[in-house]
Design a protein around this nucleic acid. Sequence first.
DNA 1: AGTTGATAGTTGCATTTGTAACCGTTTAGT
DNA 2: ACTAAACGGTTACAAATGCAACTATCAACT
Lengths: 148, 148
Amino acid sequence: MPDILPLEAFLPYRLVRASNAVSQRFAAAYKMRFGLTRPEWRSIAILGEVGEATATEIGRRSTMHKTKVSRAVAALEGRGWLTRRADSDDRRLEHLELTTKGRQAYRELVQLARSFQEDLVREMGADAAAALDQGLSAVERMPPARRR
Amino acid sequence: MPDILPLEAFLPYRLVRASNAVSQRFAAAYKMRFGLTRPEWRSIAILGEVGEATATEIGRRSTMHKTKVSRAVAALEGRGWLTRRADSDDRRLEHLELTTKGRQAYRELVQLARSFQEDLVREMGADAAAALDQGLSAVERMPPARRR
DNA sequence: AGTTGATAGTTGCATTTGTAACCGTTTAGT
DNA sequence: ACTAAACGGTTACAAATGCAACTATCAACT
């Protein structure tokens, strides 16, 4: 008799599936509204949050690879949503900042995100949402598999 | 004063991040051991679980696009880990089944997955794991965004 | 029977992504 | 000062992915 593992009971699989379901739903919203990609949305989210950051810092804070950030930033710059400012001390660094247009979009994106999360919590139920929060916090506390 | 949304407090982002952290760690394990891709691992997992399935059923059960399944199945067939058997009634269907070699790998993969999950639960703590389970279940209960 | 529409599965093509290499700049060690 | 290593950022190339079109088959309806 075979020893089986139901995929439905396997945490990594369940996490991926839940994450896809939820984030794709949200991605559909900001893609529909602004035509943004996920790396772009994340970059805006970081810049809106911290005001100004280098590309590396965006990557660190949003868990994105340098190349993704680089491309997202280039695209957002092309839209006129952010500007680059060279660092006077270290000429490798570029300080990025949202433009007025970028901040305006950010404001709307925050609205979108808030109402999305409210709907989500309502739909799953407050206690389940609290449980999810607790579970995710524990995962976040785990040491990363391997730095690179 | 700007109205900000901390990305760290946004559920979709946290879900994606947790899911990446966990599933990439596991992926590294089966990739290291067998050189499998994620679609391949999932296809094996389904076939090992249900014994026999069509490509469409694998896709449905593992939430993968047809093309992913098609390519994964082709790769696994190339390895000699599964066989195709035409349906006698409906000649569009192909019943897929693991070979002896495939089942052997499956057995080892199940071991790998079990010990991975055990480690995971131990690392996050039993109650956090239970909370995560509860939260994920609630997400799984939500209606899918859009059928295709 | 014949046409239309659906379904199973594959493949071509464009887009996205990751890896590695690269350039310019800064830091550290000698 | 000088070399080597490290770092920020970009880009070239390869691999993975998704979409759409396609083939073959089946089902339904006339």
